[in-house]
Design a protein around this nucleic acid. Structure first.
Lengths: 342, 342
DNA sequence: TCACTTTGTCGAACCGGTTCGCGAAGCTAG
DNA sequence: CTAGCTTCGCGAACCGGTTCGACAAAGTGA
C-alpha cells in the first residue's frame, strides 16, 4: 500500500515509481505501463502527509473564520461554498479554522504547524493583527475585505463605502429625506470590522452630501434584533421613510417590524442595502439591494491565493468590486414629497 | 525551526525533545524547563505533516458535502459551523470536501491519500454508496442522516418520518382537511435523499391515518421555485388550507406566493414543516415548525466520530432525534370547519 | 557491599514519499 | 573503434517528526 510495495511488484525502484508518477524525469513507456498497471490493481494513492513532508507543500488552503459570532450569516456561507469549489478546481483542499476567541490557537495550528500552504481571511477589521502578522511573515494570504491601509496587500473586497453611498443616492433620488442606517452588531463595529465602518462612512457622507436627516443603528445578527431595531428607528423618528442596511440576518426582523408598525413596503417605507442576492430574493417584497457577489469574490480570492502560492514574490494584487444596485421591489418614491423627475 | 534545532540549542537529543513534548516518557524537570525555554524563544511548533507521517494520525476530519446542489441551505451552513466548532474542542481540524459530481475524486483525496482520520457525511441517500464503501473499509465515518438499513451504522439523524407526521397531526388537530406537502427538489428525491423520502413517507401515512386529502410537490431550493410551487398548489386545489414543507430555502417564496394569492397566514392558510429555527424566526409570521437542532447534531456527530477514531472496534452507535414542534405564528384553525375541542 | 530496579537520556530505525548524483546501456559522430 | 551524449534506472539522502532498545547513573533493599 506504499510506494515501496508498488516498486517491488513492478520490479523497479521506489524512485522510478515516483518519477513515473510525477513525470519529473523520463521513464520508458514500458516500465511506466507496468507501474501504472500495478497501481491500478492495488488502487494505490500516495500518502498526502509523506508527500507534504517531502516537498513542503500540503495542497491545502486555510479558510479563517470570523473571530466573533457563533452563527454564520448567509453571506459567509456563500463565501465558504465558493472558496471550496474554486479551490477544488486548482486541486487544493480547504481547511476550516474557527479563529474563535483566541485566534492565536488556530493561527498556530495553520501556520506554525504548516498545515496549509496559504490562507484566506474573512471578516477583516480596519486594524487587523491577523493581516499584519501574515504580511510580516510573508505568508501567502488573501483577505476577503481590506484593512485601513490596503495598498500593498492581497485582497478581494467590496467597496462598502461606495455601495452604501449608492443606496443613499438611490433613496434620495426617490425623494426620501429621513433615512436610517442599520449596521452590523455594535460589538463588531467596535472591534473595527471594515464593512461596518466603511458602510457607515459611505452612508454618512453621502447623506450629508444630499442633505438628508439620518440616524444610525447597530443591530444584532438575527431576526429578533432586527425587529427591535426597527421599533427603535420608528420610536426615535416616526417620520423616517427609508432605511439602508448591511445586516442580512436582521432583514427578516426589519420587515416584520415594519409590518407590525403598519408601514407597507415600499408604499410607506423603502428598504435597501447590501445583501447577497439569494437573501434579497427570499424576502417579500424582494429587496432592492447591491447584491454581494459572494461566489465571484470567493473565486477571485482563491485565484489570487493560488497565484501567490505558486509564484511567490511579486507585488500585492487585489480586486475592489462595486456591484450595481439591483432594482427589486422594496423601494419606491417617498410619499407626501414632491418627487423629482426621473 | 525543526526539532533537531531545538535539540541542539537545548543540548539534548531529538528524542528527548520529543518525549518532553509528548510526555510519553519521563524527562527530568531540569531538561524539560531548558527545552521549553528554547521552544518559547524560537516559537517552535512541530510540523503537522511530519507528525502525521510518523504516527499515522492527521488530527483532521473530513466533512463531505452534498453531491448535488451548487448552493447550500441555511441548515447545511449550521451543520458546518457546528461541526467545525465541535471538532476544535476535540483538537481536530476540519477539511471540507465538495463531493461534487464525481464524489470519487474527493473520496480518493480524503481516504486514499490519508488526509483525514475520519469523515462526516452530509445529505445521505437511502442507498448511499459512500456510506457502504466506508463501512466496507471500516473507515471511521459518521453520517448526518441514515440509509435504508441503518442498524449497525454510525449516524446522527432526524426522524423525518415522525417529524412530518407530527406536522400532519398538528394541522389535522387544527381542523385542516386538504393539505399540501412541499418537498426538496425532484432531482434529490429521485436520487434517493433520505430526508425527502422519509419526510414524504411520514406525511403520506399520517395523512391517510387522519383521512386528509393531500397533494405532494417537489420544489427547487430557492425562493422563485417556492413561489411557483405555491401557485401550482392553489391551482391544483384552491381549497387547500395548509402545507407542510421540508424545503427551507423555498420558504420565503411560499410565503410570497400566499401573499400574492391573497391568503393570509395563518388566518386563511397554515404553514408548518421541518426547518432550522433561525429561518423559522426570520419569516413573518414566524413559522410553527419542528426545529432542526443543527448545532446539537453537528456536535453529536463529531462526538461519535472522535470516539470511533480513538477507540476503534465496538458496535455502531447512533442518535435519532425527534425535536418537538415549536408553536409560533404560522398555523391556526382551519376556517369554515367545525373545530374539534383541544 | 552487591544485585536489582528505576530514572533519564541517547542513537538508530522508521513513517512514505521526493530528489540528487551516479552509472550502465544504447546512439551518434568523428 | 572510441569519445561523448542521451536515456533510463538505481541507491542513498533527506523532509521532520515518533518510538524502540540500550545503557549509564542514581536509588533501593538485603
Amino acid at each position: 500500500m506504499n510506494i515501496g510495495e508498488i516498486a517491488k511488484r513492478a520490479g523497479v525502484s521506489r524512485s522510478t515509481v515516483s518519477y513515473a508518477l510525477s513525470g519529473k524525469r523520463s521513464v520508458s513507456e514500458e516500465t511506466r505501463r507496468k507501474i501504472q498497471q500495478v497501481i491500478d490493481e492495488l488502487g494505490y494513492r500516495p500518502n498526502a502527509s509523506a508527500r507534504a513532508l517531502a516537498n513542503g507543500r500540503t495542497s491545502t488552503i486555510g479558510l479563517v473564520f470570523p473571530p466573533a459570532g457563533n452563527h454564520y450569516t448567509g453571506m459567509q456561507l456563500d463565501f465558504i461554498g465558493s472558496v471550496v469549489e474554486a479551490a477544488a478546481v486548482h486541486d487544493y483542499d480547504v481547511l476550516l479554522s474557527p479563529s474563535g476567541v483566541d485566534s492565536d490557537r488556530s493561527f498556530q495550528r495553520l501556520l506554525g504547524e504548516r498545515r496549509v500552504d496559504g490562507a484566506i481571511l474573512m471578516e477583516i477589521r480596519l486594524e487587523d493583527d491577523r493581516v499584519d502578522r501574515l504580511a510580516e511573515l510573508d505568508f501567502p494570504a488573501v483577505a476577503i475585505g481590506r484593512t485601513a491601509h490596503p495598498e500593498n496587500g492581497w485582497w478581494v473586497s467590496l467597496d462598502h463605502t461606495a455601495l452604501a453611498a449608492a443606496c443613499v443616492h438611490h433613496l434620495a433620488d426617490l425623494g426620501h429625506r429621513r433615512v436610517a442606517f442599520v449596521n452590523r452588531p455594535e460589538q463588531l463595529l467596535r472591534a473595527g470590522y471594515e464593512s461596518a465602518h466603511r458602510g457607515l462612512d459611505g452612508f454618512t457622507k453621502a447623506a450629508a452630501e444630499r442633505g438628508l436627516t439620518v440616524r444610525t443603528y447597530c443591530c444584532g445578527d438575527d431576526a429578533a434584533s432586527g425587529q427591535a431595531c426597527l421599533e427603535r428607528v420608528l420610536h426615535d423618528d416616526p417620520t423616517t421613510t427609508a432605511l439602508v442596511t448591511l445586516n442580512e440576518a436582521a432583514l427578516g426582523g426589519l420587515y416584520r417590524g415594519l409590518a407590525k408598525a403598519g408601514r407597507h413596503v415600499p408604499r410607506d417605507f423603502s428598504v435597501t442595502g447590501v445583501v447577497a442576492s439569494r437573501w434579497a430574493e427570499t424576502v417579500t417584497p424582494q429587496l432592492t439591494a447591491a447584491d454581494v457577489p459572494a461566489e465571484e469574490m470567493g473565486r477571485r480570492a482563491v485565484g489570487l491565493l493560488v497565484e501567490r502560492i505558486e509564484h511567490p514574490a511579486g507585488p500585492g494584487r487585489h480586486h475592489l468590486l462595486t456591484p450595481p444596485i439591483s432594482l427589486r421591489a422594496s423601494t419606491g418614491p417617498a410619499t407626501g414629497t414632491s418627487f423629482p423627475a426621473a
